[in-house]
Simulated scan of single mutants.
Amino acid sequence: MAAAPDGRSLSRKSTSFSLHSPSLNSLRLRRIFDLFDRNGDGLITIDEISQALCRLGLDAAPSELESAIRSHIPPGSAGLRFDDFEALHRELDRDFFGGGESELEPVDAAVQEQTDLHEAFNVFDENGDGYISAKELQAVLKKLGMVEGQELARVEQMIGSVDRNRDGRVDFAEFKDMMRNVINKRT
């Protein structure tokens, strides 16, 4: 990241709520994909997208969705696979939010770090209650294909190692301390 004349770091304008970590971006998209894929068949049909948008209060005519999405559905397929969904997301990000542009703006590094940590925390806090439970952590670890996610007892040990107040879950302050310790160990 470059520095502005006043010492603040420079960052590309935020686009479609993109995180700085590609693996967290992929995990966030995977969660969205899984929410849209109502029948769990690994495909998102235009009907499933339409239903999801309706639940969000964003009514869209299936014909409009089809014209916007059809080019990302492989020939002979009934819907979008995850890779197709990622490609659609990148295209929408670029077309509507200017993703991929190199425009830089000054950003306070501390504010950016806090924002990134909140976004990362929210990836793990699947139910949005402000805490990461062992089951939520296990779900994320499984989605990432990590062997640690196979045993709940092991995940509970991971939670316990950073759970200062011993309530069985990780709040944002505990998460932030854990992430800073991980970063400090790497440097």
Score class of each variant (00 low, 15 high):
45 T>A: 09
134 A>N: 07
46 I>Y: 00
119 E>R: 08
26 S>M: 10
100 G>T: 04
79 G>F: 05
97 F>W: 05
151 E>C: 13
150 Q>T: 15
51 Q>G: 05
98 G>S: 02
57 G>Q: 15
73 I>N: 03
143 K>C: 08
58 L>K: 14
37 D>F: 03
15 T>S: 09
38 R>A: 11
96 F>T: 14
33 F>L: 00
46 I>N: 01
93 D>I: 03
23 S>G: 05
92 L>S: 13
94 R>I: 02
126 E>R: 09
28 R>M: 08
105 E>M: 07
135 K>W: 14
75 P>W: 00
22 P>A: 10
118 H>N: 10
19 L>R: 08
128 G>P: 06
50 S>C: 08
37 D>S: 00
26 S>Q: 11
52 A>N: 01
90 R>A: 09
23 S>I: 15
38 R>I: 08
125 D>K: 04
60 A>S: 15
46 I>H: 00
82 F>P: 00
126 E>C: 07
28 R>H: 08
108 D>M: 04
99 G>N: 11
89 H>C: 14
101 E>Y: 14
110 A>M: 09
12 R>C: 06
32 I>P: 00
117 L>W: 07
123 V>C: 11
114 Q>A: 11
91 E>D: 10
42 G>L: 02
67 S>Q: 10
82 F>W: 03
130 G>E: 03
37 D>M: 01
98 G>N: 02
99 G>F: 10
31 R>S: 07
122 N>R: 11
63 S>P: 05
114 Q>L: 08
50 S>I: 12
138 Q>W: 05
139 A>W: 11
112 Q>E: 11
45 T>D: 09
14 S>I: 15
53 L>V: 04
79 G>L: 05
118 H>P: 06
141 L>T: 06
125 D>F: 05
66 E>Q: 13
51 Q>V: 09
139 A>L: 12
81 R>K: 10
129 D>H: 08
44 I>M: 06
141 L>Y: 06
133 S>Y: 01
61 A>N: 14
37 D>C: 00
146 M>T: 04
39 N>T: 01
130 G>T: 02
117 L>K: 13
92 L>A: 11
93 D>H: 03
55 R>F: 13
14 S>F: 13
13 K>P: 02
59 D>L: 14
104 L>I: 01
107 V>I: 10
138 Q>Y: 04
17 F>H: 11
29 L>A: 06
114 Q>T: 15
18 S>M: 13
112 Q>T: 15
113 E>Q: 07
136 E>R: 02
144 L>F: 09
46 I>V: 10
145 G>W: 04
79 G>S: 05
130 G>V: 01
43 L>T: 08
143 K>T: 09
127 N>V: 04
136 E>N: 01
98 G>R: 06
